[in-house]
């Protein structure tokens, strides 16, 4: 009981901190919404080809032709999850490590596990909120349909969020200091977002193959399926979730092996 209570209290503290830090809230929430507004307005009424390639005549070969915003809303929701769980969490953790906060936390009776649980729990709550917000904005402003399969959507968000949190924590090991953290985050996430087709159909075969190595692509796929942008009877896609899970295990192993509680002093 007490471990759970401690963790829950930590979740609450983290959430409070997140919302009080308007900048973190902006990067987690404002950013995907801002992109949704810009691209949603630009491509409103147009269609896009998901998972296929544009043929010589511009037709959608082997994919699904859907209204752009049906695709873009789940894509931006996925990005929101990646921002809150991956980028924000990592930058924040490196910042705390630089400040000596992590080291100090270890000196308190709070178990490390409860602290980590607090961070993860809070990030997941934020992730769910950003997805809901994106869906609402997309529906109200751009007539995107509501998520077709709510339960798979929720499971995808929670699993995907957790996986990105763990990978983010592993990445803190190669991030030397807080100043460099945003650059490292941009470098690792932005190109993957592009080649995984977050903004528009991207089907250069080589890059899609590269994208398929990383979890970003599979998370987007899972979200598109759950939101109903891709045809699916149940909204579940076992392959997407399996790849995410594998990445989660890899990330966890790397985190346990390489995570540092103190900044490296030269």
């Amino acid at each position: 009981m007490s471990d759970l209570a401690v963790s829950l209290r930590q979740v609450r503290a983290e959430q409070r901190g997140f919302w009080r830090n308007r900048v973190a809230a902006f990067f987690g929430f404002g950013f995907p919404i801002m992109f949704l507004l810009i691209f949603g307005a630009i491509f409103k009424g147009q269609t896009t080809c998901i998972d296929g390639s544009l043929g010589a005549r511009g037709q959608c070969v082997g994919g699904t032709l859907v209204p752009y915003n049906n695709f873009f809303v789940p894509a931006m929701a996925a990005w929101g999850v990646i921002t809150t769980c991956f980028s924000n969490l990592t930058i924040n953790t490196v910042y705390r490590r630089d400040n000596g906060l992590l080291k100090r936390l270890r000196g308190t009776p709070l178990p490390s596990a409860a602290f980590v649980a607090g961070i993860l729990g809070s990030a997941l709550i934020s992730a769910v909120i950003v997805v809901v917000l994106t869906a609402v904005v997309g529906h109200l402003l751009f007539q995107a349909p509501w998520p077709a399969h709510p339960l798979p959507a929720l499971v995808s968000v929670l699993l995907g969020g957790l996986v990105f949190c763990v990978i983010g924590l592993a990445l803190t090991a190669v991030t030397p200091n807080a100043d460099a953290a945003p650059a490292v985050m941009n470098f690792t996430s932005l190109p993957l977002l592009f080649i995984s087709g977050f903004f528009f159909n991207f089907n250069n075969a080589v890059f899609v193959d590269i994208a398929k190595v990383f979890p970003v692509y599979w998370f987007k796929e899972a979200m598109l399926t759950a939101f109903g942008a891709e045809p699916s009877s149940s909204g579940w896609n076992g392959q997407d979730l399996l790849v995410l899970l594998i990445w989660g295990v890899v990330g966890l192993a790397l985190t346990l092996r390489f995570f540092r509680w103190e900044s490296r002093r030269v």
Partner: peptide, 14 residues
Amino acid sequence: LFMVIFGLLFGGNG
């Protein structure tokens, strides 16, 4: 990286 990605994408599909 962008140069490589968009270089190959440029004018391409989509």
